[in-house]
Structures are given as structure tokens and as C-alpha cells.
Design a protein around this nucleic acid. Structure first.
Lengths: 191, 191
DNA sequence: AACCCTTCCTAGGGCCCCTAGGCAAATGGT
DNA sequence: ACCATTTGCCTAGGGGCCCTAGGAAGGGTT
């Protein structure tokens, strides 16, 4: 019986592709083994368990997403940067739904990758450099941006915007206009 | 053998409670059957399959959430209404994590409950009455609000805000300030 | 050629979803 | 009160998935 040449890395990449096709939560050790023409049990020489597999996919996706965003952000500032960041984020989520779902997998788990999380925070802070925000406000703004981005793509993907005829792209552009306005005129202390 | 008195409604309520305890995705026919002291197969006289069970929980949760929001919204307008709406939403999500997760279950499915969806849209539009927004803008605003609310509670629950010392409640209040500002001064057509 | 490590196998246990077919408890008509 | 029908729950069983244990064959090392 010739060896199939399975490695943790190949498994992870295959799992990521599978996730985009059938959904992250449907990525299974069995399905993966089938894809490699191998029995389920064989994969356990390479990965500890499904959880580890999913975590690896999550790490891969977080890195890819950060790369995309960093790329889009390069050389831009202000609203230009905001739009580039947001579109890179949304495009990744739309182009890789399974991987994107993976990025939200078990952040609270013991093995959460702090590097990826930090990198995303850095990127968002870089985006904010175009707006004059000092510290507690900056964190608040990061949270607001991330929430809005994640919420939007998440609802859009789930079909939450298909009830109305209004195009999802237009509303997205408006949301970015709104966020830009808010960042330019951040409601600092209290009114 | 005395009958256990299982009904679809009791199953749904039990599933909802179970979801809040162990997570929506871990709600299983077997676990539910155990809870009723009954064999798995017995439940299939009451529900078609797991999918139907989950859909029922989703419908229950959507109704409950709408009730909470409607209650909070009563007699309020403007920012007052915005804050009341938002807090009712977030409180429900925090108090009933499993049920809240259910509300995002398979909106694109064939059997999505259009009544619940419509009711939520109505409520958001009621909230917007305090701000002067005409039609395409209103839809955009509804989407922005929903995205931000959902994104925030979703990230907060996943532990995304625990890396920083800044309290999640404060950032939330700031986000609401920002949304209020945006709604009061909506960036209408184009800049 | 003998050795070892790694990769893959078979066997098997556990949990879950779901169907088929049967018996017994409730229900309702006479 | 009695019987027929409906309904609730059962056992049996198939399929899928996760994972462990223990064995055998690939491939490199000496």
C-alpha cells in the first residue's frame, strides 16, 4: 500500500478548501480522510483531534485575512484606508466563507493564537492613524469597526439582507461613510 | 410504562434551555431524550428531525428577543430608544447565549420564518422614527444597526474583547454614542 | 541485511441521527 | 363498560462521525 503523503500542513490546507465548499462546521476527519484516499484512523498520526484541525484552519485563515488587509492598507490613509481595509475584510469573507467562519472558532479556547489576534489589532490601529484618536477611544473605535465589519458580513452571508431589494453593496458603502464620519468626529467624553 | 408527556412545544422549550447551558450546536436529540427519560427514537413522533428542532428553537428565540426589544422600546424615542433597543438586544444575547445563537440559524433555509424577520425589521424602523431618515437611507441604517449589534455581542461572547483591559460595557456605550451621532447626521447622498 | 521510525491498516467502542415495526396507553364511539 | 383507533413509547438496526489500541508494511540508516 503506497503512502499517501499526508502531512499536517496538507491536511490543514485541504480542510480549509473543504470548509469553503461545504462549510466550516461540516469539515470532518472522515471527509478529509476520504479526500486523501485513506482511513480515518490514519489521520491521527498527524493531528491530535478534530479540534486541533479546526484550530489550524482558524490560524491559517487569520493569517491569510491579515495578509489581505495589510496588502490593501499599504500606502493608504484616512477614509481611503478605511474603505480598503473594510473591502479587503469583506472580500475575504465572501471569497472564503468557510475559512472566514473558522476565524471565529473558539477564541476563548486555551490554544488561541495570540500572534494573529495581535496582528489584527495592529492593523486596525494602523488604519486609525489617519484619524486623531487617543487611547481609550482608540480601543473603543477598534471594537466598533470590528463589530460592524463582522456583523455585516455575517448577516449578509446568512441571507439577512435578501428580504429587501436594496443592494448589499450600497448599504455597505453607506455604512463605511457612516463609520468614516464617526471616526472623524468621535464623540469623546460625554455630551 | 407511563407516558412522559412529550410534546413539540415542551421539546422546544427544553432544547432552548439546554442551548443556553451547553451551547446551541451541542443540543442533540439524544441529550434531549435523556432529559425526558425517554429513548431517542421516541422524539421522532414529535419532531421530524434535528433540523426542525433547531428551527423551532430559533423561532422561539426570535420571538422572545422581539418581545424584549418591543418592551424596552415602549414610550421612548431618539437616543433613548436607541439605547433601550440596543441594551435589550445585548442583554438577551448575554442572558440567553444558546437561544441567541439560534436566532442566526439558517436564515437562508427554506422554512425561515418571515413573520419574525418582519417583526424585527418593524421594530428597528420604529426606533428610527426618532431620526429623520427617508427610504433608501432607512434600510441602510437598519442594516448598520443590526450589523453593529450582532457583531458586538458576537465578538464579546467569543471573548474577542478580553485581551484588553478596557471594559466591554464602556466600549458598548461609546458605540451607541457613535451610532446616535451617525443617525442624527446621516451622510445622505454623496460627499 | 538488520534496525527503527513513521505511516497506514484493521478492530472496536462510544455518541449521534434516523427508520421500521410492534406493543401498550389513552381516547372516543357505541 | 367495551372495543377500535390513534398516539406515545419501545426495541432493533443501519449509517456516520470521533478516537484508541495494536499490528504490519514503507523507507531510510547503519
Amino acid at each position: 500500500m503506497a503512502r499517501a503523503g499526508v502531512t499536517a500542513e496538507r491536511l490543514t490546507r485541504a480542510a480549509a478548501e473543504l470548509a469553503d465548499e461545504i462549510g466550516f462546521e461540516n469539515v470532518t476527519v472522515s471527509a478529509l480522510a476520504r479526500g486523501f484516499g485513506v482511513k480515518d484512523a490514519s489521520l491521527y498520526s498527524h493531528i491530535r483531534n478534530v479540534r486541533e484541525l479546526r484550530t489550524r484552519v482558524a490560524a491559517l485563515a487569520l493569517t491569510e485575512l491579515a495578509d489581505q488587509v495589510a496588502d490593501a492598507l499599504a500606502g493608504r490613509a484616512g477614509k481611503d484606508a478605511l474603505v480598503a481595509f473594510a473591502n479587503a475584510y469583506r472580500d475575504y469573507a465572501k471569497g472564503h466563507p468557510g475559512r472566514y467562519a473558522a476565524t471565529r472558532y473558539e477564541l476563548d479556547g486555551e490554544s488561541a493564537d495570540p500572534v494573529a489576534a495581535r496582528r489584527h489589532a495592529e492593523l486596525t490601529r494602523a488604519l486609525l492613524r489617519g484619524y486623531a484618536l487617543s487611547e481609550p477611544d482608540q480601543t473603543d473605535a477598534v471594537r466598533l469597526l470590528h463589530s460592524t465589519f463582522h456583523g455585516y458580513v455575517s448577516l449578509e452571508r446568512a441571507g439577512g439582507f435578501r428580504h429587501t431589494s436594496r443592494g448589499a453593496d450600497v448599504s455597505w458603502a453607506r455604512a463605511l461613510d457612516a463609520l468614516d464620519a464617526v471616526l472623524r468626529n468621535w464623540p469623546s467624553a460625554r455630551a
